[in-house]
Design a protein around this nucleic acid. Structure first.
Lengths: 224, 224
DNA sequence: CCCGGCAGCCTTCCATACAAGACGGATAAT
DNA sequence: ATTATCCGTCTTGTATGGAAGGCTGCCGGG
C-alpha cells in the first residue's frame, strides 16, 4: 500500500494527509489499527514532523484518535455518529431540494437528466467507482442549483464516515435502484413540486440506514 | 490580552488553541491581523512547535488562513460563508424542532420554560454574556430533546463565524425580542404543533440576516 | 525617470534531539 | 502463589536549528 507519495500538493504534510486519508477510506488502514508517527514516517521516508501534522488534521476530521503519550489509532466507526451525520445530511438536502424544486432554473432538469444518463452508462459498464463519483456529483449539483455549493463542501468533511461504510458495501449497493430514485427526484423538480421532491429525497437517503445495519453485522470489529 | 495561559488542558498546544480562539472570537485579534509562530510563541513564552500545531487546528476550523512560506492571518469573515452557515443551521434546527414538536416528551416544555426564565433574569440584569450562553443552551437543549445532541456539536464547529459577528453586535441585539421568539417556539412545542414550531424557528433565525447586513456596513474592514 | 536584478529579512516548513508519560514484563518480597 | 515495584521501551509532546521560498526595497543600468 501507498509506496511513493504522489507529489501533487505543495508540502509534504499535505501529501501525507492525502495518502493516509485514502488508505483509511479504502480500508487499507482498518478501524482499530494502531499506527505511530515514526512508523508512518519511516514508511514514507520523511521525518516525524509532517506526519505528526497530518495526524492532527486527520484527527480533527474524525478519522484518527490521538491518545496522548499512548498511541494513535484509526478510529472505529461510530454507528450513532454515522446516523447523526445522516440526519444532518438529510436536513440539508431536504432544504436544498425544496429550494430547487420551488424555483427551478430553466436548465436545471436538463443538467440533472444528463448526469443520470452518465450514471446509467457507468452502471451498465459495472464501474462502481465511477458510479459513486457521479452519485456524489449529482447531489453536489443540486447544492449548486440551490446556490449553496459552499455548504456542500462543509458536508463533505463529515461525510467521510459514511464513505468508509459505503466502501465496505461497494458490490452490494444496487445502482439500478439508486438511478430510479434519482429519476423520481428530477421528475419532481421538472414539475416544480417541492413536496414530492422532498418525499423522494427522504426515501432516497433512507436506504443508507439499511446498508449501515447490514454492514455492522458483517464487520462488527470495525464499529464501536 | 491573554497574559498567562490557563493551564486547564493537558498539552501546551491545546492551551494555545483555546487562548487564540478566544482572542479571535472576542475580536482581540481582528480579521486581517497578521500573526506569526514566533510572535505568538514569544508572547506566551513557549516554543514555536505547539503554536504551529495550534495554527493548524484553527486553520481547519476556518479562523486562520495559513499562506505557506508567507504568513498566517486571522481570516476575514466571509459574508457568503456566514449566510451558508446560517442556511445549514436553519436546515438542521428546523428538522430538530419538527421532531421535538411532533413527539414532545413530557417534560420538554417545562425544561424549556425554565431556560427562558433564566434568560429573562439575565436580560433584566443586563448580563449579555450570560444571555448569550443561555441562548446557546436553549438551542442545544432542543437538539438533545430531538436525540441528536452530537449533531449540535457539529454545528458548533461552523458556528464560530457567526459568533464573531455576534460579538460585534453585543449591545445591539434586543434580548427582549429574542425571548419573545423563544416563547413562541416553546408554545408551539407545548401544543405539539410542528408547523407552527417550524415557522417560529425560521422567523427566529431570520433576524441574524439583518444583523449581518448591518454589521457589514459598520465594520467593512472585517469582511471580505 | 523607469525598470530589472539582487540582497537581506521575513515567513512557514522540515529535520532532529530530547523530555515525559504510559505500558508491560521481569523481578523480588511476602 | 501472589502481589507490588521497578525498569526498559514504546508512545506522543516540546524545543531548536536550519532549509526553502516569498516580499520589499535598495541600487545600478538603461
Amino acid at each position: 500500500m501507498a509506496a511513493a507519495l504522489e507529489h501533487s500538493k505543495e508540502t509534504i504534510a499535505m501529501r501525507v494527509v492525502d495518502a493516509l486519508r485514502d488508505d483509511i477510506i479504502t480500508m487499507a488502514l482498518k478501524p482499530g489499527d494502531v499506527i505511530s508517527e515514526s512508523d508512518i514516517a519511516g514508511r514514507y521516508g520523511v521525518s516525524r514532523q509532517p506526519v505528526r501534522e497530518a495526524f492532527i488534521r486527520l484527527a480533527q476530521q474524525g478519522l484518527l484518535l490521538i491518545r496522548p503519550k499512548r498511541a494513535t489509532v484509526v478510529k472505529k466507526i461510530s454507528p450513532t455518529g454515522v446516523r447523526q451525520s445522516r440526519f444532518i445530511r438529510e436536513s440539508i438536502e431536504v432544504e436544498i431540494i425544496r429550494r430547487v424544486a420551488g424555483q427551478p432554473s430553466d436548465d436545471a432538469a436538463d443538467v440533472l437528466q444528463t448526469l443520470i444518463a452518465d450514471q446509467e452508462a457507468a452502471s451498465a459498464a459495472n464501474d462502481s467507482r465511477r458510479f459513486h463519483t457521479l452519485d456524489e456529483l449529482f447531489h453536489r449539483t443540486l447544492a449548486r442549483l440551490a446556490g449553496v455549493e459552499y455548504a456542500w463542501q462543509l458536508i463533505d468533511d463529515h461525510k467521510m464516515q459514511l464513505d468508509r461504510v459505503r466502501y465496505l458495501t461497494l458490490g452490494v449497493s444496487s445502482t439500478q435502484r439508486a438511478i430510479a430514485e434519482h429519476k423520481q427526484i428530477v421528475e419532481a423538480v421538472a414539475k416544480a413540486d417541492p413536496a414530492a421532491a422532498e418525499t423522494a429525497m427522504r426515501a432516497h437517503l433512507a436506504r443508507a440506514e439499511l446498508l449501515l445495519n447490514q454492514t455492522i453485522s458483517d464487520f462488527p470489529d470495525f464499529f464501536e
